[in-house]
Design a protein around this nucleic acid. Structure first.
Lengths: 223, 223
DNA sequence: CAGTATGTGATAGTATTACTATTATATTTG
DNA sequence: CAAATATAATAGTAATACTATCACATACTG
């Protein structure tokens, strides 16, 4: 992506934050540094107190932006999925052929994230790593149904739905378009995780193997 | 499963526990009640103090069996995967035809768990729910590489490897047997989760839909 | 220009968690 | 019966995840 994205703001459910972090310098530093810290120390060890120390601010000030670190994770994840969705829509919009369109979509969502400097304070490569390592924790909770009703997962759901629709447009007889779409998204994160920690459980060792694996899987499945 | 399993003990890495919970009555109560509690309140809210109160014992006594609740989760998960592996090996052992064997394996690992009273103190239905909701948290940690080296995930890995081998036996030219095997196991948990909380993201709404989905997916993919 | 609202920082305080340590008591085994 | 072992009870600690209050600086408003 390039300049274009610089003027686009990823629209995130306002209930996720107390105060929009994009609305101030402190807010942006919270986002920027929380990405670095969560990547470095993991979500469990990350605290608002440590973040405050890192950005030369106070714990209590961070609470003015996010109720708790769970909400911050929801924010980061929503941002990431929104960013991916933008790329997906942008890149597939002009493709007429349904199969080609789906292939492009699979490529976008399964590929390894590379440097993108469109958003100065957000490191997309690290954010992708965070999503791989922490995203499941955002919905594997007892509060998932309430939070889902509040709309905290809409962007992710919309992304799955988009892919599901593209699958149906290639083959309207295929019975499991939503399951296949969710398998692609979740499975892609999982394959990237395995690559880093359980390499014997995957055949995806190069950067683009994951894309090849899913392209083949989907093509044959809905043929 | 039936009587047979009653005399089989699921072999779990001894480093996971301080004292084998199968070796005492208190140990068995810890396992039995922790399953009920984690299912009811979720892993985050579950504490050894609450468990102690529930089983009429003391927090400190539970620490004599498990270092912390993370290790207890690893124990429960290992037990579950060991139990599944046993069923898989038992049910597929006598099948000569490679395709039939793989189909049986997929059926075993993707189906919804139903009542099994072989192990009096372990409720397999609830344990399956716990694995669906909490298993990812056991490996999505900063300690995963160390713990993997310690062998805390061997049973799960062996299970993936078994399925991977079966895939190769059906089609030795297929390039992604391990990725496909891990996609089946992880994807199955995910589809069951979606069924309960994000039903618009899956087409698996009946108990056996997940099995049908994966049977079709695998059959077409490696054809 | 005074007054007020807003944003941020500093400090303190609370309940809970995740332990560790010690001691007492009960039970089992040799 | 003595010794070892298992369990229970109590206390204590550092850290976490907040909440509340107050102070201060800046900005904007009538």
């Amino acid at each position: 992506m390039d300049q274009l994205l610089q003027s686009v703001k990823i629209g995130i459910n306002e209930k996720i934050y107390v105060k929009d972090p994009e609305s101030s310098d402190l807010g942006k530093r919270i986002i920027e540094q929380s990405i670095l810290m969560i990547d470095a120390m993991g979500f469990e060890s990350f605290t608002f107190k440590k973040l405050g120390a890192k950005i030369g601010s106070n714990e209590s000030s961070i609470y003015r932006y996010f109720e708790n670190k769970h909400k911050l994770l929801l924010y980061l994840a929503s941002w990431y999925w929104g960013w991916l969705e933008y790329q997906l829509v942008f890149s597939t919009n002009s493709i007429a052929d349904a199969q080609q369109k789906l292939d492009k979509a699979i490529e976008i969502v399964t590929k390894t994230t590379v440097e993108d400097s469109s958003f100065s304070h957000i490191n997309e490569v690290l954010l992708n790593k965070i999503v791989i390592n922490e995203y499941s924790k955002s919905y594997l909770t007892k509060e998932v149904d309430t939070e889902n009703k509040e709309g905290y997962f809409v962007i992710y759901k919309r992304l799955v739905t988009r892919i599901s629709t593209m699958i149906t447009e290639v083959n309207s007889d295929y019975k499991y378009p939503s399951s296949l779409a969710s398998t692609i998204l979740e499975g892609s994160l999982h394959q990237h995780f395995l690559k880093g920690h359980f390499s014997s459980l995957t055949d995806c060792h190069q950067d683009d193997d994951s894309t090849k694996y899913f392209l083949h899987l989907v093509a044959t499945t809905i043929k």
